[in-house]
């Protein structure tokens, strides 16, 4: 083989490599270095390198609460997405091909609409004078409006709506690989439908559930638009806090440190979850 052919793959991948460097790696490195600058309320960003920003995050209970809320919310959203996405994907895979394509469009349709628009839609639904509260009051189930805007519950509901299609897609992909004969086999051995779902189908779609969960978890932990609109200033999560540090307090180094911390925790959680599930269900990953 000639040298020029050996280097061909390199040249072919060079443009995308450069693009990745410029828009992913470089900003990451810059954020990391920014987070190491000192900051002073009066003089602004100083010189030298320091870990004070990280120390502040570690010792300040204000940040603890925000991180706890963010990851608690991400986990809850992930669990709810599994609970909704699993049956939804299963039902979808059992439909006749015509109904399946119609249903897929309905499931994936929300992805085609901007997150901001969808979230504002939820704001209309969930407000104190919103459609949901007015309807419930009209029926007489409640006297006082239920507070949903600017609450944890409201944010979770909106996030689930935004993210559930990702879960459905991931589970759907692994359902495609499932041999339908295994369900028949279980049935012929005397299993009822619920047992078949629990003991045969579910364990085999674990890889799909895992990849869906990773996507949903990472996206909801780093979601900005939905918590900003539904949660507002009252219910801060890490991404909205970062935003405030950068644009409100102008404390860029602290914002950068928060961003790095968020990234590290999301990565660690994802990897740990991945490892655990792959170990626990190693047979279905072969």
């Amino acid at each position: 083989m000639t040298p020029s052919r050996n280097t061909l793959p390199f040249w072919l991948s060079a443009p995308s490599l450069l693009l990745t460097m410029a828009f992913v790696a470089l900003p990451l490195v810059m954020t990391l270095s920014l987070s190491l600058y000192p900051y002073d309320l009066t003089t602004g960003i100083g010189d030298g390198m320091t870990l004070t920003n990280y120390r502040d995050i570690v010792i300040d209970e204000y940040f603890h609460a925000i991180f706890a809320r963010t990851f608690g919310m991400a986990m809850l959203v992930t669990v709810i997405c599994i609970l909704i996405g699993l049956p939804e994907a299963y039902v979808l895979s059992r439909l006749s091909s015509r109904w399946r394509s119609v249903s897929l469009v309905i499931v994936l349709g929300p992805l085609l609409i901007s997150v901001v628009v969808r979230t504002l839609g939820w704001a209309v639904l969930l407000g104190n004078e919103g459609i949901l509260n007015n309807a419930l009051r009209a029926i007489g189930i409640i006297d006082e409006p239920i507070r949903l805007m600017f609450t944890f519950t409201g944010t979770v509901v909106a996030l689930v709506h935004v993210l559930v299609p990702f879960m459905v897609l991931a589970i759907w992909a692994s359902l495609q690989k499932l041999d339908p004969a295994t369900e028949h086999a279980a049935e012929s051995l005397g299993a009822n439908q619920i047992t078949i779902l629990r003991r045969i189908v579910f364990p085999q779609v674990i890889p799909g559930v895992l990849s869906g969960s990773l996507i949903v978890f990472a996206l909801s932990a780093s979601a900005f638009a939905t918590p900003a609109i539904i949660g507002g200033r009252r219910l801060k999560v890490v991404p909205t806090t970062i935003y405030d540090e950068f644009l409100g307090s102008l404390n860029w180094p602290l914002g950068a440190a928060l961003a790095v911390t968020l990234l590290v925790i999301v990565l660690t959680c994802s990897l740990a979850m991945n490892r655990f599930v792959e170990w626990r269900y190693r047979q279905v990953f072969q």
Partner: peptide, 14 residues
């Protein structure tokens, strides 16, 4: 209560 062996065997992989 019939015993069935499927063409693909349909063993439970997990």
């Amino acid at each position: 209560g019939l015993g069935i062996v499927f063409q693909s065997y349909a063993l439970f992989p997990h």
